[in-house]
Design a protein around this nucleic acid. Structure first.
Lengths: 187, 187
DNA sequence: CGCCAGGTATACAGATCGGTCTACTTTTCT
DNA sequence: AGAAAAGTAGACCGATCTGTATACCTGGCG
């Protein structure tokens, strides 16, 4: 990726996330990136493709960030709770408006849109991740607990983005910890 | 509200929800409502105002639908679980793409936008509702359990809308039932 | 040296956007 | 009956949208 293309992707990512995809025009993206529209279209081809690469980029960085942290965790339960910790830091640092995938989904209704697979794929991956993380702790009932954790986590992202519960991630983490304890005690 | 205005609001609501607010133009809304643009502007003044009334209308109908059901419930725990039941029916009937408030929030970044208060207000109301509903069951710790239920519920709406967990509402209800049981047993 | 990818600057195209306007007709209510 | 309100039909405005075209410049590389 050329330096100009990187600047375009950075500007597009920031603007798409802050203002919404349809509310941001390619002219503005080009201007913010300090690039002409021709360069933008030479590198990305279309706005739709730029949207796809924006989401793919965020997805990739999120998974890398999460994977790196999980590798440093000792116990299985630590790994589960670390997901909430990383999410909290991620939100505080760069995502005051909630999950970019959820927000993008609100603007993209067409399931045949290439961005749709990225959005759905990340959520599916998160569900599988939670389920796999709790399997060593509760071999029977990992599916159930995994789903609950997924819903708690997703709800926390939304509540945080809506500013209706600023400590949403911390609360979700605490509730998750309690669920892990009772599940471990029962098995 | 005049008959034409009602048709406009119905068409706008359907299109805004299905395709997103910014993706739908006033010309399309007027055409779908079988109304001229002049009538639309005579009744609503601007697209922004139409968006506000769209959200206010859905908010009002949702609260009325929920309140009506809650009145028919006997025990406090039935009332909590009824929220998930009503949500499930609401989603199945008219909202395959998740919560309209969350989706609208993805497209409206400005907190000074009049629609912002409606969005935040509904979520705040839901949080208070859950907290109040569980207070008779767990006088101490109603805040904590109320928040957890709110996150579970919100996460279920998102997961359902993303089609990543079709039975999200049912799962959330089942998990809520378990939480209510253990909370009641502990107190 | 010459080539060419990557870039700037800018004008342009066609469509659509939100919003206004005039002129006329229909409904509704007193 | 008659006036006010609500509606249709449709042209029009300026701005903005995605996307393309032409002409020129610049740095690195064989």
């Amino acid at each position: 990726m050329t330096p100009a293309a990187r600047r375009v992707l950075e500007a597009a990512g920031r603007l798409f996330y802050e203002r919404g995809i349809h509310a941001v025009g390619v002219d503005l993206i080009a201007a913010e990136a300090g690039v002409t529209k021709k360069t933008l279209y030479d590198r990305f081809g279309s706005k739709d493709q730029l949207v796809v690469e924006y989401l793919a980029d965020r997805d990739e960085r999120w998974r890398a960030c999460l994977d790196a942290r999980l590798d440093t965790c000792g116990s299985p339960s630590d790994r589960v709770l670390a997901v909430f910790d990383v999410s909290r830091e991620w939100m505080d640092a760069t995502s005051p408006r909630g999950c970019s995938m959820v927000n993008a989904h609100a603007e993209i209704d067409d399931p045949s849109h290439p961005a749709y697979a990225i959005i759905t794929g990340q959520k599916q991956w998160m569900l599988t991740l939670f389920t796999d993380l709790v399997r060593p702790l509760v071999p029977t009932g990992a599916d159930f607990l995994g789903r609950t954790l997924m819903l708690l986590h997703e709800g926390a992202l939304v509540a945080f983005g809506l500013r209706v519960l600023p400590g949403a991630l911390e609360h979700a983490r605490e509730q998750a910890e309690m669920l892990l304890r009772t599940a471990a005690a029962a098995s």
